[in-house]
Amino acid sequence: MPILALDNVSKSFGALKVADQVSFALEKGEALGVIGPNGAGKSTLFNLITGNLGVDGGTVTFDGADVTRQPPMVRCLAGIGRTFQIPQPFEKLTVFENLLVAAAFGSSRTEKDVSDRCADILVETGLIARANQTAGSLGLLQRKRLELARALATQPKVLLLDEIAGGLTEGECQELVDTIRSIHAAGVSIVWVEHILHALTSVVGRLLVLDFGKVIAMGKPDDIMASKSVRQIYLGIEV
């Protein structure tokens, strides 16, 4: 049974279709990459999975339960963790408190029960030296790391990563890939939207290509990148 499944999910903003009959299934422990040109509906897809946006039609099934009508906090508790493309930290809280609130609410525990785990995640994501700074004082790299750390704090079964490597240097990107790999190795299923292909393909086993809200292709990264239509739509615009 897949951990996450979308069945004919659609969403429009007026005349613009941002998700058009999207269907796919993510197996337990799988890492899936999502690519597509800007405006293809990648971030919208995440918002539909997390419930930050409501669907117009179709169903979202998570861990065997239909969550299509559930609000984001319920889906988070069920085990869907996400990062935002544009980091959305709780700016006046410290880095540690950002994790604390996510861990305490996202896994329904007391602050005391989760504080050690939050500290461990800060070590793992390289943020421990900034634990007591306000999140508003962080630079871009740290904000991206905080997005990842905060999502991890909710103890997700599925982690949705939205262009987490964008804007990072080669070295920073490599560090991030290593972190994501170890998260995946620990058994967390991953859906990763990313433009930086080599980072993406070094982690994921399957690629999904979106264009104008439609699934254009899905399969092994090598096959996908060899496909003519994908090269036209995606690389033709990107390169």
């Binding site: 988070c76 508790l77 935002f84």
Partner: peptide, 17 residues
């Protein structure tokens, strides 16, 4: 802590439960 999170960023707060 939850109240402070909602004050800072309502959408992100919803996303962490």
């Amino acid at each position: 802590l939850g109240l402070a999170a909602v004050r800072d960023n309502r959408e992100a707060a919803r996303s962490v439960g």
